[in-house]
Design a binder for these strands. Sequence first.
DNA 1: TGCATCTTTTAGAACATTCTAAATATATTA
DNA 2: TAATATATTTAGAATGTTCTAAAAGATGCA
Lengths: 166, 166
Amino acid sequence: MNSKLKVIEEEFIETIGQLSESLSINRIVGQLYALLFLSPGPLSLDDMVDKLKISKGNASVNIRELERWNAVKKVWIKGERKNFYRANLDVLKIVINCFKNGLIQRMKKSTDKIAKTQETLNKSSSLFINKEEKNIAEIYQDRLKRIKEISEKTENLVKVLSGLVE
Amino acid sequence: MNSKLKVIEEEFIETIGQLSESLSINRIVGQLYALLFLSPGPLSLDDMVDKLKISKGNASVNIRELERWNAVKKVWIKGERKNFYRANLDVLKIVINCFKNGLIQRMKKSTDKIAKTQETLNKSSSLFINKEEKNIAEIYQDRLKRIKEISEKTENLVKVLSGLVE
DNA sequence: TGCATCTTTTAGAACATTCTAAATATATTA
DNA sequence: TAATATATTTAGAATGTTCTAAAAGATGCA
């Protein structure tokens, strides 16, 4: 391949690798995706191993991670025994789905737990007898309410984002 | 303190700790913030060390991380030699600022680099002589353009979010 | 100044993640 | 089915992160 094109490919893969890391995503995951995203045609595991200079095991594990995210798809090529992969080019959709299925779900779990804590607190109000305790309970109620408000806003935001790609 | 209130405090701290971890934030950072967020008054490092059962060094490092984020503030209490801290209760503002100063900035760095790569590619077009190379160059141009579009959308989103808290 | 109190830094232990190479499992073709 | 090609799993090495305890560095007060 033209050496200029090779340089561009390498720069892109490197950049996306760094971006992945700053998003706390495994670098190889990002680089595999970048490689496929740029590639004119589908690539085999061996192709990727060659380009990125990684072990096949590493490539195998991380390409399946990308499959789970719907970021890449297996492609069968007639006359070939190897699996080939191509990138889903709709990056925005991938990102938003990752948000919804990963981050947001885990956030929801946390905010649900906080909502439960809040309930516990409300039900317990009769237990707080002296002024001091009543005061603290009131403050706790205020603070937990703030968290609830935020989680509602977040849920709305996710809905808006989801709407953007459907 | 009333044991029911203590349970609620502990549950909250635990939940926020887990949430932090799922956001790839150090658990202690989240727990320190949770502790101060709930606390009726400011707390000293020693208070936090006692509650969370961590070393003072650990508390010191991570409380300064929170200061950097504007998530907590030092408070001087007359007659006290210790530093005290209180939480900034505006969680949304903190989160959005963290986005802007951390994530988004690093993303911007990456997308800037990709924009540069894109320019290089455009300038190099005369170098691609045969049909094959021209074809690949065209595909690369398309792919890089997609990335550019996404980074523009992201920038807009950040502006909208920023508007929400100012 | 010198002592007491508090905070930060540091060195390395404990723990967690990521990677490779080799072994194992699966699929394809003759 | 045997032989070969390919993919996945596994064990442990390499690397990276987080934690503590102790040392060093501040700060304030007699």
